[in-house]
Amino acid sequence: MLAAVGSLAVLGATLGTLLGIAARYLRVDENPLEAEIEALLPGSQCGQCGYAGCKQAASALVSGEAKPTMCPPGGRETAAAIAAKLGVTVDLSGAEEMEPEIAFINEDICIGCMRCFQECTTDAIVGAPKQMHTVIGEVCHGCGKCVEVCPTEAVEMRPVPVTLASWHWHKPVSRMVH
């Protein structure tokens, strides 16, 4: 019993130490800026910027291949935050102020084909085959991928409805503090 526990513990500790040493020698230096930029992006891997995911987009931003305004779901706020982090000036007047939008499914036309369901990166669409689908508004992050795949054009982007819970005073000046 003691020999079994002891030998496993010793083996585990030895292998762990060796791996720790190996990790030190084989460390890959990643740009810490990339991780910070990635944290500013929405992180839903929607791919609208043309890169495979937010990590790839972040490295493109750091290397200067992409402009801070490249992230459609992030909108103006994210663009400003990225520009501030990278220390570049960005012309935000070009980036139109997009109203936050979420997907909406017109349930009369939905045929229940499941295409939008499969496309959704945040699992915001509920439904089953041959049953109509609908969108859970709180989960939808407005990437618009479902709009493209819908064969009956039942999905559209609509501005987030203003309810008593979501209404707020408009800010006098939009300050980009992040």
Partner: peptide
Amino acid sequence: ITFILVIAA
């Protein structure tokens, strides 16, 4: 279990 440990490492 020890073999799995070694392989994982």
